[in-house]
């Protein structure tokens, strides 16, 4: 088994904490995981991308080859389009539909929708609305993980355990709202 994910978003959106949940869940389920992150200059509000590789065998490269990713998981719609050349012909895009407009030439809504329409396998998530329903806007990234969960090689229980491991020191209320966000996300199709 091998599952390769390109994670994307905008610096400051919490792409790395989203990655941490999936990585922890996959490790908990007994897989080998490699995750390549972006630190430094690129983090300042710019496009951010990370490679995550999950496998039951040896993983050599930290980077995923073009056309090899099983999923592009994005916290921002424009960013989900940036890495399509990594996606395998059977791969799926899971992305938030809420744009982060911090550049002057951000595409028009219609253009963005048209571009996303061309992606054959996709799950579009309004993470903001669902995060609000889960009780905290900060759980948007867990909504997105939830929406991706049916494709991931880990189960909902593994994800919940990972949330528990990573967030328990922040208190039970935060753990619960993240659980809820995962659940709500998983119902999106």
């Amino acid at each position: 088994m091998k599952y390769d994910i390109i994670l994307s978003g905008v610096g400051g959106q919490g792409v790395l904490s989203l990655a941490a949940v999936i990585a922890t869940a996959a490790a908990g389920a007994g897989y080998k995981v490699r995750q390549s992150e972006v630190h430094g200059m690129a983090q300042r509000g710019g496009a951010v991308m990370a490679h995550m590789r999950i496998s039951d065998g040896e993983i050599y490269s930290d980077l995923i080859g073009k056309g090899c990713a099983d999923m592009v998981l994005s916290m921002e719609p424009l960013e989900s389009l940036r890495y399509l050349t990594w996606l395998s012909p059977e791969g799926v895009v899971v992305t938030s539909t809420n744009p982060v407009v911090n550049i002057p030439n951000y595409p028009e809504d219609a253009d963005l929708t048209a571009a996303l329409d061309k992606v054959s396998k996709k799950t579009l998530v309004d993470d903001k609305t669902l995060a609000k329903e889960a009780g905290s806007l900060k759980t948007g990234n867990m909504v997105i993980v939830g929406a991706a969960s049916s494709h991931l090689p880990v189960g909902m229980e593994d994800l919940k355990t990972a949330v528990d491991t990573l967030f328990s020191r922040k208190g039970d209320a935060i753990v619960q709202s993240n659980y809820k966000a995962l659940e709500l996300g998983s119902r999106v199709s």
């Binding site: 400051g12 710019g46 073009k66 389009l81 940036r82 399509l84 012909p89 992606v119």
Partner: peptide, 19 residues
């Protein structure tokens, strides 16, 4: 390798910026 798609539109770049 074959990929799902070439970029479907000319994407606006998003360089890093001051917070």
């Amino acid at each position: 390798r074959e990929t799902a798609a070439a970029a479907t539109m000319d994407l606006a770049g998003r360089p890093p910026q001051l917070c």
